[in-house]
Nucleic acid binder design. Structure first.
Lengths: 231, 231
DNA sequence: TAGTGTTTGTATCTTAAGCTACAAACATCA
DNA sequence: TGATGTTTGTAGCTTAAGATACAAACACTA
């Protein structure tokens, strides 16, 4: 496995050179641990001193419900990280536990050293800081977009907004969703049959046609209208 | 008006001393502008070079819909800021326009100087950076919580989760909402009458009683169950 | 304390979307 | 090419929540 390649995919190390990544180990107190399945690598309420980046394997995040039950709240794969938000919040404690699901290697970097300029005054430090800021800011953007879909009440509105946004992003009348009906329904937070029903109604209305992951917009104006009116 | 007091309320300047705030002006290239109603102080698509902090007055944020129409997407009052997220995203351009609604004074601080250590190596710079990170991270947290309510499908689930969360936060069976029915309905993204109806049903079921902004939880266990089961 | 505005409660009706369960289409691979 | 698993479409029923419109309670102040 190539650590350099993997890390460069991680947003924190965007724009890093190999030699800069090497500095992680002294500059940011980087170290790598290996864990087997079931190992708890982060625990709710514990202070976040390091950010963990999964180099191999997989892990699952859990939040604790007030009655003590644990609830799965997401998965982490190679290239993903944990603690990168909590590290900067008020109490700096994990708000979810992370449990290794498949034998994994984790690279840790120290939070304290990210925010402080290091004595070597190295540019990689500066970059990491900027990347951290971007990483957080972009997350806010994404969450804002996601919330928009959730707030739209009508099925047709949700679908239209989603398709129209994809249309704007992809620039062609033929768009690709990037997920199947189940995933799309889950993203929009609706039931798949209801969504399917409405998509077919939209096809009957001549707005779209589709086949699997590929959607063709037949009436852009109407779709735009629906997307804009949606609430 | 006391700039110091106001700025210390702003999250970016949390923990700042008066004398450190004074440094803003040379260290962060701070400067103050005064605007009258109608003035556009940020425009969608334009690069964000500074973060604006409203010292007095009020402003409105607009996003541009694809058909060109502008849509109100939030208000800004004294102590609030704009550009503090976009400043760090990929293209670093405003994604909403900001228009002054009431004669306002705005303090600007340079983004470029926030992320770079300044030549004076002043601690205020360091603090500002940490505050910026907190500010963004906490926003992510908040948005995550907000999205949770949106994702719950049943009315009773939404209400229960909200009340239960407030109960956990406030620690007493008598909780205060901090908003009226309209605002609460808007936050949960439901219609007020439907919400009212369900609150009354919950009262009839002996789970809560209420009067205006004050809610008393009569059956904590049941409320907890509802909040946990909610989806 | 009357008068106005706001917030909250109530009623009725309608409909969109959820759920379940099944059928059809498609993909994959031996 | 048949067998199996997955994804997508279809149907019918039920119900929760939306919309609207009005009434009651309350708050403010003149």
């Amino acid at each position: 496995m190539n650590i350099f390649k993997l890390l460069k995919k991680n947003k924190l190390f965007y724009n890093f050179e190999d030699k800069e990544i090497n500095k992680i180990f002294d500059c940011l107190h980087g170290h790598i641990n290996k864990y087997s399945r079931g190992r708890v690598v982060a625990e709710i309420g514990q202070p976040v001193e390091e950010i963990g980046i999964l180099l191999t394997g997989a892990a699952v995040k859990f939040i604790k419900k007030p009655n003590g039950e644990l609830e799965n709240c997401g998965e982490i794969f190679a290239g993903d990280m944990f603690g990168e938000v909590e590290a900067y919040t008020g109490d700096r404690t994990f708000n979810s536990s992370v449990v290794i699901a498949e034998e994994a290697t984790v690279l840790y970097i120290s939070v304290a050293t990210i925010v402080k300029q290091c004595s070597n005054n190295c540019p990689c430090h500066q970059k990491l800081l900027e990347n951290t800021l971007s990483c957080l800011a972009e997350r806010i953007d994404t969450m804002g977009v996601d919330a928009k879909y959730l707030k739209i009440k009508s099925m047709r509105g949700k679908i239209s907004k989603l398709f129209y946004d994809k249309y704007l992003a992809q620039g062609t009348e033929t768009i690709h969703l990037g997920f199947n009906r189940n995933e799309m329904a889950e993203y929009l937070n609706v039931s798949r049959p209801s969504m399917s029903r409405e998509m077919i109604a939209m096809r009957e209305d001549g707005i779209i046609k589709f086949r699997k992951d590929e959607i063709v917009i037949l009436n852009v104006d109407e779709l735009q209208r629906l997307a804009n009116e949606a609430r």
